[in-house]
Design a protein around this nucleic acid. Structure first.
Lengths: 226, 226
DNA sequence: AGATTGTTCTTCGTATACACTTTGTCCGGA
DNA sequence: TCCGGACAAAGTGTATACGAAGAACAATCT
């Protein structure tokens, strides 16, 4: 795994710290680094085939984003999402993504809507093929796209970060609600296309409530907190 | 007493990068570094009397928080808030701080309320003394305290970051609305004390609308372009 | 056993070096 | 005079090494 990452990182020429950050995020989200796992700088530097400096800079951002917790003089460990943080995250998402849906409804151009519909089609197709990974990916893309259409950079960047965390928590809970939620997505895109802000907000709320309920069901199993 | 010692020992040591970050933030908010100004690593390192490494790590976080913009291979410049970002920020704050007010109303203990009332008193006093700087400071403390009482770390940290930005924009516009807004604060704390979530949310909304309107008036003067 | 003392691991900060980009400047030629 | 390109300067991006301090753990001593 370390070799794969190293090869990939070496190939591109973005700043190393950004590549490390991206790799670190996905490694955490994918569960390659498990909650509570200790992330020493040397270890990460070796895993990614870079020196400690880019690693440190990436760790600071990962800390600000809440993926890792840094203990003073002890270094970083992967954050441990508790069921409490799930509740908190959904409470914030409810406020933010409903706003995003409203703004998207008010501002979406014909091209925007067409792009969303295209994602919807691909999603339906992937669902039929039982390609769950692809469905999950399209799911993300759809949500992120709506955020982008909202045209509010603050909203977009904050909600995106939250969304990544939700993905992480879901993955940890082994939830695969994606196909089930596709119908809600269609409602949402319909509402956005209609240009009706209230309706879009309502659709987003319904979607989030369902997702939240599903998250709770999966959380029943319990995470190994701390 | 044992706790006192632990708090002292643990809290005493602040990593240099955090000190640099704090200093950088306040320097930007206070207008010591003006929007568009170039921030070379060497210059910052010298200004703060540290080496480049802590500066770089602080810069990454400042970038994530939106205080600086980093141009690839060119380094960092202080971000330039436009009137567009003001609108966007208030749209998000409206969703977030109303939620915070509701949660605070639902969860505030007697001690929490007492602390808020104490801030209110100090604020009234400072207003009488015409000590505007102190009023502004108490203003911040009050808002941050409410966020903390909400008990949602995500909400708290996101809204805090937004709040710092608003302070910045206000300072740039030379707005001193603080004394004027104090009456709204009293309403808000009253609502939180009552435990009525709807009422608290309403009070927060009224406060934000007034602040937003004031921000716009000041923005008329015009900020540098996007 | 319990407390004390080392030892080790790791972070944190510093310093230094160097490649590579971008930028700015200067100089010669049309 | 103006243009264009070589050339130098500035600054980032990255690596490496070293020392100091803190935390955790093992070994030792009373």
């Amino acid at each position: 795994m370390a070799e794969d990452l190293r090869d990939k990182l070496g190939a591109q020429h973005l700043p190393l710290r950004d590549q490390v950050l991206a790799a670190l995020r996905t490694a955490i989200i994918d569960g390659d680094y498990l909650p509570g796992e200790r992330l020493t700088e040397d270890r990460l530097a070796e895993d990614f085939g870079v020196s400690r400096n880019p690693v440190r800079e990436a760790l600071r951002v990962a800390e600000a984003e809440g993926f890792v917790v840094v203990l003073p003089r002890r270094g970083a460990v992967v954050a441990s999402p508790s069921s409490g943080t799930i509740t908190d995250m959904f409470a914030v998402r409810e406020r933010l993504e409903t706003l995003a849906a409203r703004l998207a409804a008010e501002r979406a151009t014909a091209t925007d809507v067409a792009a969303l519909r295209a994602l919807l089609d691909q999603g339906r197709e992937a669902t039929q093929r039982q390609d769950l990974a692809r469905v999950a990916e399209l799911n993300s893309t759809l949500h992120l796209r709506i955020l982008q259409i909202s045209g509010n950079p603050w909203l977009s960047s904050i909600a995106k970060s939250l969304y990544l965390h939700v993905q992480w928590v879901f993955r940890l809970g082994a939830a695969q609600r994606a196909p089930h939620s596709w119908a809600e997505h269609i409602q949402l895109v319909d509402a956005i296309e209609s240009g009706d802000g209230d309706r879009a907000e309502q659709a987003a709320l319904a979607h989030l409530d369902a997702a939240s309920a599903a998250a709770y069901e999966n959380a029943e199993g319990g995470y190994g907190a701390r």
